[in-house]
């Protein structure tokens, strides 16, 4: 089947997709967007987390055709060109990335959390990231990274004189 949707702000079309393909398969195999990772294909690990019409979902559990006409944002859509998103920077700086396989999903899930809750408590972070599994780093540094990103995002932007407020 043919699937047309908007991905990271750009209209995209995938041709000849098998009807049983997940959105994750469509992104990775038909749209050349391998940022979202495939680790479990059963909703357990969160490494495939993307936004679908503004909602955080596991791309492996969305049937490709269900994304028809919808808006998808993947981890590739968060950075501006070569400039990393503050959430990504915070993960690097806090040492929350080892093999990096879980990182794209965690970055998108963290982005979602900070959009809704700009200054989350550690408990809120744990709850929001409960669906993202990391097998290397351990969660201490990941939680540090989220706190760091929260701090950065609510600090005044250098030189814009506008003061605080999230700039996701």
């Amino acid at each position: 089947m043919r699937i047309a949707c908007t991905v990271n702000g750009t209209p995209r079309v995938a041709e000849d997709v098998w009807e049983g393909t997940s959105l994750l398969g469509v992104l990775r195999e038909h749209m050349d967007l391998p940022g979202s990772k495939n680790a479990c294909e059963q909703g357990e690990c969160g490494s495939c987390s993307v936004y679908l019409d503004g909602r955080l979902v596991c791309a492996c559990l969305v049937l490709g055709g269900q994304a028809q006409g919808r808006e998808v944002i993947t981890v590739e859509g968060l950075a501006s060109g070569e400039v990393l998103h503050p959430v990504q920077e915070a993960f690097l700086e806090a040492g929350a990335v080892q093999c990096g396989f879980c990182t794209p999903g965690l970055v998108v899930a963290t982005h979602d959390l900070l959009t809704r809750t700009p200054q989350p408590t550690t408990v809120e972070i744990r709850e929001a990231l409960a669906g993202n599994i990391c097998r290397c780093t351990g969660y201490v540094k990941i939680i540090d990274a989220v706190h760091l990103a929260a701090k950065r995002l609510t600090l005044p932007r250098e030189g814009d004189g506008k003061g605080g407020g999230p700039r996701l």
Binding site: S22, E41, Q42, G43, C58, C60, L61, L63
Partner: peptide, 17 residues
């Protein structure tokens, strides 16, 4: 198929076609 959170697991693991 609604949210797909049960259905897609079956499909991804080819338990059901």
């Amino acid at each position: 198929i609604a949210g797909g959170t049960d259905v897609m697991v079956e499909i991804n693991f080819d338990r059901h076609r």
